[in-house]
Design a binder for these strands. Structure first.
Lengths: 329, 329
DNA sequence: ATCTATTATGTTAGCGCTAACATATGACGG
DNA sequence: CCGTCATATGTTAGCGCTAACATAATAGAT
């Protein structure tokens, strides 16, 4: 049978609670007792039961994190930022993946809340009604990340519409007139939709049309390559493509290179995210750099602050973005 | 106060255990009772407490997964494979990141075992002694992934030495003689070291030297680019570089392109992993395709089989690899 | 109607830990 | 040598659920 606290206590000739204290607040027990208990722990090979502890104290050192996809580097980097920060403070991450499905998100939230997590990190501001209700009822800290706006809890992200405007302005300033916006599954990846809205505003203000091409797979190189072909077929006069992300844009850029299409002379290409690849292709990709790891880190820091000081306020953090102009536009 | 099972039971005028059964084995309760209970659950807004359930049953629906890094797409894809398979069966993933540190791995294993996970997935076969002991003592299913060999539990992976040999043979057959192997932090990423050993065997058998360049950052584009420069400085006659992974190799390839160095005429470049980018650069990257998602999926499937049938045997699965010859060699 | 076999539900105890309070131990001044 | 305070340790009860067994309700066979 697996040894329990009581076994350790017996071995060390102390009570169970003393062992518990050695584990949870070592400086409240006398050093000699502590040593005795610690060697007993080693001796019996005790492994702490987190379930029991969390149940008894009604709080766990688990952080529930819910992202829409793991195939997208962006969320990976966010998770990485969360991990690094939380791990240093002794929290574990329980990871959920909604596949951009709000029903699944709701289901995940429900399950995760059942683990009495110390906090909940969730991507985006759009949730199903049931999910909204669950989140509002819950007392623990919540962080909604990536996107800025009307949040239930903490909010760390950037203004996607503004990012869309920023890039559109850049393209218009560069003199491009026939500009297509290309996204992949814009319904699900609605943040790409928000950027498109910003993009369209700027183009319409400049008296231009803002055609949209929505690819039916999620953004990868292959899709970007195919999108380039489609744009050139459907809108042959197109002079610039504003891609919803760098994966698509890089795919198109590399494809253009293979096809002998000159970028930006024949067609300009812009992306979003600022992935490393964009700086290593020739011509370098014009893109908007989003501070992804910083989003994770900052969300984690804010959450930790709240966990340590109950009454830190629910604040909103604009992490901003940077236009990085390469030679692709 | 948060509603508990008992609250639901009272509302539905049944006993707590009946509610528990509706949740855990719905087909053992009469449909009418089930409906009654389900509407009571809705009415009181019951959220299941996983901690209590897992404690009482000494088993949770959490899978502990430990990987060395989240910055490396490879592990992300593995996790993705795990996720997809496990989520369908109602398991959640508790994610740990060792940063290629065996001490940290041990710590993580210890913590994770405290969550009474249904299974443990761990990367690689090398663990600290303490970790080995922990793993051996634990009764639940363990899967060691990525690498093939002497495993404690299930083993799903590929033969890295053989992969190294395979690529080295390819390079030798192509007529390259001065070949450098480039890795990043080969001590920590010891699977890259295993590939190097295979590589060296083949080269030595062919009467060739097998110089190694070990970069001090983990593999990204930038490091690959810098490695190319260093190789050309340190070993100016080098005709081919065998990179430990596709990130490095692509970084070098894109850098060569920027510098006007012709690949493969002046220098040949090979990678490992088969990342999408390799097929989209010009020339296409010669690489070894490792079935990363398949590793995750298969590990998950095997674990699930074991969870459902206690006595499925601990087996070893070679997922293999494929040499994908591009124009870069 | 009676006796099984089957299915549906309930009762009791306890998973391993910690909160909250209770008690013991020692340090120190008067 | 006692009382007070501070520190160290112990006692008790219970977190919310499920395993294991007990009982009730129903169906079918005689």
């Amino acid at each position: 049978m697996k040894p329990t606290l009581t076994d350790v206590a017996r071995e060390a000739r102390v009570s169970a609670i003393t062992v518990s204290r050695v584990l949870n607040s070592p400086d409240t027990v006398r050093p000699e007792t502590r040593v005795k208990v610690e060697s007993a722990i080693d001796k019996v090979g005790y492994v702490r039961n987190m379930l029991a502890g969390s149940l008894a104290s009604a709080s766990s050192r688990v952080i529930a994190a819910i992202v829409p996809s793991l195939s997208n580097v962006v969320f990976i980097e966010v998770i990485n930022g969360l991990q690094n920060e939380f791990e240093r403070h002794g929290y574990q991450i329980l990871l959920g993946n909604t596949d951009y499905d709000l029903e699944r998100e709701c289901q995940l939230v429900r399950t995760f809340l059942g683990w009495s997590p110390a906090a909940l990190i969730i991507t985006g501001l759009r949730h199903s009604d049931a999910c909204q209700r669950l989140l509002k009822q819950w007392e623990g800290p919540i962080a909604e990340i990536m996107e800025l706006g009307e949040a239930i809890g903490l909010n760390v992200g950037l203004d996607h519409a503004e990012a869309g405007r920023c890039m559109a302005r850049h393209l218009v300033e560069r003199g491009y007139r026939r500009i297509v916006y290309v996204a992949a599954q814009i319904e699900r990846d609605y943040r790409a939709g928000l950027r498109y809205q910003g993009h369209r505003e700027v183009l319409q203000a400049a008296g231009l049309e803002a055609p949209l091409l929505d690819m039916d797979q999620l953004g990868q190189f292959e899709t970007g390559a195919r999108a380039l072909d489609q744009v050139l077929t459907l809108h042959p006069n197109t002079r610039a493509i504003h891609f919803a992300n760098d994966d698509l844009a890089s795919g198109a850029l590399l494809h253009a290179h293979r096809q002998g299409i000159h970028v930006p002379q024949e067609i300009a290409i812009a992306g979003f995210n600022g992935l490393p690849i964009g700086r290593h292709v020739t011509p370098r990709l014009t893109t908007i750099v989003s501070p992804r790891e910083a989003i994770g880190r900052m969300a984690a820091q804010q959450i930790i602050a709240r966990l340590e000081d109950e009454h830190a306020p629910h604040s909103s953090h604009d992490v901003g973005f940077t236009l990085s102009v390469g030679e692709s536009t």
